[in-house]
Write a protein that binds this DNA or RNA. Sequence first.
DNA 1: ATAGTAAATTACGTTAACAGTTTAACATTT
DNA 2: AAATGTTAAACTGTTAACGTAATTTACTAT
Lengths: 223, 223
Amino acid sequence: MVARMAESWTQEDLSPIRDKVYAYLKDAILRGEYKAGDRLVERVLAEKLNISRTPIREALFRLETQRFVRTVPRKGVVVNEITQAEILEVFMILASLESLAARLAAQKVNDEIAGDIDRLIAEIDAALDNGGGDEVELNVQYNELIGRAAGNPKLHEMLVDLKDYVRAFSNLSSALPGRTKEALREHKDILGAIRNGEEDLAESFTRIHLEKSRKAYMSRSHV
Amino acid sequence: MVARMAESWTQEDLSPIRDKVYAYLKDAILRGEYKAGDRLVERVLAEKLNISRTPIREALFRLETQRFVRTVPRKGVVVNEITQAEILEVFMILASLESLAARLAAQKVNDEIAGDIDRLIAEIDAALDNGGGDEVELNVQYNELIGRAAGNPKLHEMLVDLKDYVRAFSNLSSALPGRTKEALREHKDILGAIRNGEEDLAESFTRIHLEKSRKAYMSRSHV
DNA sequence: ATAGTAAATTACGTTAACAGTTTAACATTT
DNA sequence: AAATGTTAAACTGTTAACGTAATTTACTAT
């Protein structure tokens, strides 16, 4: 039938252009292609992506409410420059919310989640032995698992946003060489505590983990 | 000088229309003028406010990223209906972040903040004696004070957003008759703990306060 | 009378054009 | 040569119009 083909086509194309632009720009900022202070000129972007200015503007407004860019009235939008102080503020908030998530996950752990945790721990072990693996992917899985286990989608969403925010403005993408392995081990400890339903331990481990991450970031950015 | 006059004039008119529309719509949602499920038709709003659709759209996009409305592609935007579960999720997050703020405030308390706290406590006492006063204003002052004392603007901003969110979708504006006085007393306890630099106490009081607020909300919404 | 279909209406998605402001270059004057 | 005034280019803010998809309405045929 033609209808089905048309449906799959429109389905693909149903997402407004603004969403694609938003994804493109956010990714570019997260990857460091656009750096703090860079101007994002609507017409330039419109020509580059071969669309009109409107979807660009709409994407920029979304980035503005998430503080990735700031718009100066009548002047334009620039990639936000962020102070070290603000990053430390976010680390503090992250510590609070991540430990909450860990505690909730430990409270609500069940057989299904436990199985998922076992699988992820096994993958982490393998990565630690083989000296690497895809740490980024493991990190994503870790966050997804905790988010699901905590049973609080709103919390998960906020955590994702906050981590994106930190990542964008601290160039944490290529983290410290020794730190990734350490982080994996810390994740293992947290997952183990959650698996056993030990709320207090899961929360403490998470707080320690975030504190170490913060120190690693600070020692790096002071160079 | 002409320059100063011109400056104050442009200052006034510098804010784009979209900001005014955003303020108008958000206020309307917070006041309950637009309720969950109501459609917000761009053209209708544009005619009502005597402007074109574009600033309307821009304001709606901002409201969308803050989850006050949701837009269905090709259909339009409606005021978000929120589940009870999600409100409870937000209460949990609020408890975590507010207790963090209270702890930080207690850590960083100084003479200036202590003086402000004393003044606010005196106002609360007066309100409690006179049987009321402007509780809403006292609430705002309480939040501003804690936000300032905690020295974490990002945290303060998130708290404001989350509270707006809860307020919009729980019709908490006209709270329970007995609850406002109780809340004022709890605020007093928290402020006292902060004033004395007692971190643990400030955090505990805040957790208890939020837990009571949650229960009050739940008992109310189950009617 | 009902069901199915076609037309008209509605409303969003996008584009293009216009208006107003800011920035920058340039010329003029001291 | 420096400073100031003027002009032009660039960019955002806003409007209006067009295209398209979805919904509703009305009409026709059974």
